[in-house]
Design a protein around this nucleic acid. Structure first.
Lengths: 330, 330
DNA sequence: TTGTAAGCGTTATCAT
DNA sequence: ATGATAACGCTTACAA
């Protein structure tokens, strides 16, 4: 391994001078600077990150915690974050929590040992009491999911508008019996709270009461969607439309509906969420809420970069607009 | 930050003893070992990986290079690798090359500075002449894609059997005019060479000559698939079936075909590759070649783990069988 | 069985 | 403007 000493020897200068060149310090004669550069090039020298980190200088690594990388929402998000991080000369470490508290914690712990110098959390499993202590080891930023009433900067999508718009669309189409899937528990302050709000608001405005039979909690996958459809079919009083929490659930609902001989959107209208590639692959194509995932990733990476700088500033919270994409399923 | 010195002080012992406990050295009295453990627990001590790495001891990090994490094939592969790595107490760093030679190289470079202690390459952009030198800095393993005639261990799928089986299936169904998409250039020794072989073999056995008009090179995405279908529609002599290189291309072909009023499989039969979730979402559902992606990821991580051990052994090459899944599109 | 001290590659401090 | 040296946290001869 080529070290700074090798470069020093080769250029006939001291380690200090070489180090100064590497770190772009002022007060180095142009002449020596070039000498060092030449030696570095010839030797193919590249500074050892472990040493720099140990010494306390290197801040080059961002971490991002996702629940599941195979979920396209998150893989696209990670992709955007990675691109932006890379452009800003940060290396990105990707962590998969599997929605596991302990695993999430073990990743947060990497801040302590400076394995990562800042973390973007796209999901949050633990309470703020347990997360808060880690903020003193390095910057943390919420992206997508977040905790309320914290000082942690957030980059998020306007979920409540998303569900409001989707529901409104169904109501405008004449539906009054509308099913609703949520990834959370439909609780005041839990997961998907913002979406629940929008759902409520649309219903309230139209004077439609909530029918709790048609609320499906803890839904995530295609399989879940199929299951939902099965349940609906077993009901005496069925909804004529369903607002799902993701394109994947929507896909499951649609596949099962068609398998059971129903027609979409006549027998059941379906609205997705995300506008993933599958939305266009389904037949009929899926009406859905498009989320500017890439933009969100960019903003998050930029925000964290800001927090990781010398004189760090906490970036303002970012709220990104979502958009209703009307296709054949409604 | 809690350091080994703090633990030493707290337990009234020396740094060496603490270090020995951490590293499970023999010849430590049970008594002192417990003393150290207690101090570590009380202090919440966790060894600093940078220091250990610098010192030359830590081997805890695997890297995996993928072309694009948003490609489900690779996100599932990465997922499997990550799970296995985690179980073996390795941390996984995920790198996205974007099919860029320089980026791939910069990741390989991390071996030099011991940022990663071993690398799984799921795609390979550079020639072996440029990759080979890196093998002396740390173990490299090919997974999925690979270079022939190298000493680098491989974990791969039996691609040639995959395309052979898929083509055979179409031929058995009575097709003689069969289109073929490849991600490479249909060259003897380039990308997808194995698949090309299987394609040829099936055709040869049936005595069907290759029609180069129906060979589409450099195909990858849904958009590519749509384009392929458009080209086919503009032909006087059209194929009645098409063997695509991935479910995504297949999806594009199918979507465009249906948009243009064709019926699948009557007007055109389609075979995918991968058996991704979308295969079941399409209508009709997609006949495809299922690849044991998770198994491949496991084997790769296990193989690399073997190579990273004390007295490293190169694992045997692994060839995983693929399987034809017959659905409605053929 | 335990402790002392040197060294991994880098940068900050203090001289010069 | 440049150089010598100590220190970051850890492991390993070498001593005891």
């Amino acid at each position: 391994m080529v070290t700074i000493s090798d470069v020093a020897k080769r250029s006939g200068l001291s380690k200090s001078t070489v180090s100064r060149v590497i770190n772009n310090h002022p007060y180095i004669s142009k002449e020596k600077r070039e000498l060092v550069q030449k030696a570095m090039d010839e030797l193919g020298y590249y500074p050892n990150p472990s040493a720099r980190r140990l010494r306390g200088q290197l801040k080059s690594t961002m971490g991002v915690i996702v629940p599941r990388i195979v979920n396209p929402f998150f893989s696209y998000l990670v992709d955007a974050i990675e691109q932006t991080a890379y452009q800003n000369n940060y290396q990105l470490l990707i962590f998969q929590s599997n929605e596991n508290k302990e695993k999430e914690l073990s990743f947060l712990n990497l801040l302590k040992t400076r394995q990562v110098d800042g973390i973007i959390m796209t999901s949050v499993e633990n309470n703020f009491e347990v997360i808060e202590p880690y903020t003193k080891y390095g910057p943390i930023l919420f992206c997508n999911e977040y905790l309320t009433n914290t000082s942690v900067p957030k980059v998020k999508l306007d979920q409540s508008i998303g569900s409001y718009t989707g529901m409104k669309h169904l109501i405008d189409r004449g539906h009054t019996k509308i099913g609703y899937c949520t990834g959370g528990l439909f609780a005041e302050d839990g997961k998907d709270k913002d979406r629940n709000q929008g759902y409520q608001k649309a219903l309230d405005e139209a004077g439609i009461p909530v029918n709790t039979n048609w609320i499906f909690i803890n839904q995530h996958t295609i399989e879940d969607g199929k299951e939902v459809m099965k349940q609906i079919l077993s009901m005496d009083d069925r909804p004529t439309a369903i607002f799902t929490g993701s394109d994947e659930i929507a896909a499951g609902v649609m596949i099962e509906a068609k398998d059971q001989g129903l027609t979409v959107p006549d027998d059941i209208a379906i609205v997705g969420f995300d506008d993933q590639p599958i939305a266009e692959m389904l037949d009929p194509k899926l009406t859905t809420i498009r989320q500017p995932i890439s933009l969100m990733g960019e903003k998050a990476a930029e925000g964290l970069a800001l927090m990781m700088q010398e004189n760090a500033v906490n970036p303002k919270d970012v709220d990104l607009p979502v958009e209703l994409i009307i296709r054949g399923s409604t």
